[in-house]
């Protein structure tokens, strides 16, 4: 040990004595102290890991179930062309066939003009006299 070291050690020793005199009293065990935390056993760690894994698996399963595609409805409408509105029958007014066909003169059936849609564009032939 050099003279420099001895001098520094002495100076620090003086400082230590002064600071030790001012040191607060050791108050002992604080009131809030609990028992020391013991390190967890491997079995407890294993159980915790298993719980965590089970929770993760359950979460994943729930997620899969919620994203599963829903089944198709039983009577689906195949296309828009085939769809008929339920109020369609209201358009079927009485005698609506008269409005859609060209009437033929003299052709009466049951007091009504017979529809001639099957004879459309055909020439009216005169009956051949015997």
């Amino acid at each position: 040990m050099t003279a420099n070291d001895r001098d520094l050690r002495d100076r620090f020793a003086v400082l230590r004595r002064q600071e030790e005199a001012q040191a607060p009293r050791f108050t002992g065990r604080p009131v809030s102290c609990r028992e020391p935390v013991r390190p967890r056993s491997p079995a407890a760690l294993l159980a915790a890991a298993a719980c965590l894994l089970a929770t993760a698996a359950a979460g994943l399963w729930m997620r899969t179930v919620s994203h599963r595609p829903q089944p198709e409805p039983r009577n689906p409408v195949a296309s828009l062309m085939e769809w008929k509105p339920p109020t369609d029958f209201l358009l079927e007014t009485p005698g609506h066939e008269l409005l859609r066909t060209v009437p033929a003169i003299g052709a009466l059936q049951n007091g009504l003009i017979a529809p001639t849609h099957h004879r459309r564009n055909s020439q009216v032939r005169k009956p051949v006299l015997p």
């Binding site: 070291d5 620090f12 230590r16």
Partner: peptide, 29 residues
């Protein structure tokens, strides 16, 4: 509250780097 010598020492310690201050304190103090 420190004596003149201790004051000088404390003042000098502030000039040193933290590491130097800590090593000197641990060895000498």
């Amino acid at each position: 509250s420190a004596s003149e010598n201790s004051r000088a020492l404390l003042q000098a310690l502030t000039v040193l780097s933290a590491r130097q201050r800590e090593v000197l304190h641990l060895v000498f103090y």
